[in-house]
């Protein structure tokens, strides 16, 4: 591994370790409101200052990382897995199955999501623990975002289906399903990897939007979406550059993650 790769790995490990050891690194709990010092500037007690309710920003950043940085990749993996399953099956099977799957994907993309999510919210109980809310949020994100990826993967699979090597695999007596998973799927890995990388930051941000529908991560748990949402208000950054900390950490995390884990994709 190159030096750059090694340092990316170390950095990544440090971020994950810091988020897991949030309880030791941050002096305060993420939910304790130091109501006498709201909007504090960075100081010894609060290395990154406090938010509007006097909560320690460092603690919220670290706990937020734990929530988002670990779950967003998991949700992205779920989403890509669904895209692959549906896309490859459709692309390989062709015929009515393909048409049905792609019609479903089109429908999925064009559905009035807002209303469907509202229905989902209406069906869920009001009392869910914050941790359950996180799980629901990311499961939803993962489960609902398969359609665009499935379209891309379908066209990839349909092209590969007519490739020489697929024909040869069949001529060697390879059964259809095995042909799909053992021969065609590995060729779609770069496509799937791309889907995966796009999905992570998207999920981290859409989590905050789901929060608008009562489906996001519930108070008082911090999340990256919530922390990043503070920056959407440009007037605030000028007065408090510490607000950029989550954005910087997210960028570093994604670059390192990609650097370390995308080596296998040639």
């Amino acid at each position: 591994m190159t030096t750059a790769g090694k340092s990316a790995g170390v950095l990544l490990f440090a971020i994950v370790a810091a988020s897991l050891a949030a309880g030791y690194l941050a002096p305060a709990s993420y939910e304790t409101q130091f109501r006498e010092s709201p909007n504090a500037s960075p100081c010894r007690q609060f290395p990154l200052g406090t938010d509007e309710l006097g909560r320690d920003r460092l603690a919220r950043l670290l706990y937020g990382s734990r929530v988002s940085l670990l779950l967003a990749p998991a949700a992205a993996a779920l989403s890509v897995a669904l895209s692959a399953l549906i896309g490859i099956t459709a692309g390989y099977a062709g015929g009515w199955l393909e048409r049905a799957a792609m019609a479903a994907a089109d429908l999925f993309v064009s559905l009035p999501w807002l209303f469907l999510l509202l229905t989902v919210r209406a069906l869920l109980p009001l009392n869910v623990t914050p941790w359950a809310s996180i799980l629901i949020t990311f499961l939803l994100l993962g489960a609902l975002s398969w359609a665009p990826g499935a379209r891309v993967i379908r066209s990839g699979a349909a092209a590969l289906k007519h490739s020489e090597f697929a024909l040869l695999a069949r001529a060697s007596g390879c059964p259809g399903p095995r042909l799909l998973w053992k021969h065609i799927l590995p060729n779609l890995r770069p496509l799937m990897a791309a889907q995966f990388w796009i999905a992570i930051p998207m999920f981290i941000l859409s989590e905050a939007n789901l929060g608008m529908l009562g489906l996001g991560i519930a108070e008082p748990l911090p999340s990256w979406g919530g922390l990043l949402a503070e920056i959407q208000d440009p007037g605030r950054i000028a007065g408090n550059p510490v607000l950029l900390a989550p954005a910087i950490l997210l960028t570093v995390f994604l670059s390192c993650f990609q650097f370390v884990f995308s080596k296998g994709d040639r």
Binding site: L118, R121, A122, P130, L213, G214, A218, E219
Partner: peptide, 25 residues
């Protein structure tokens, strides 16, 4: 306000789950 009320009530042992919903819902 919801976050503040949530913590105030935690002091007397009441656990509030804050659920933001869109206004029509």
């Amino acid at each position: 306000m919801a976050a503040l009320v949530q913590q105030d009530l935690a002091k007397i042992g009441i656990r509030l789950n804050v659920v933001p919903l869109d206004l029509p819902s």
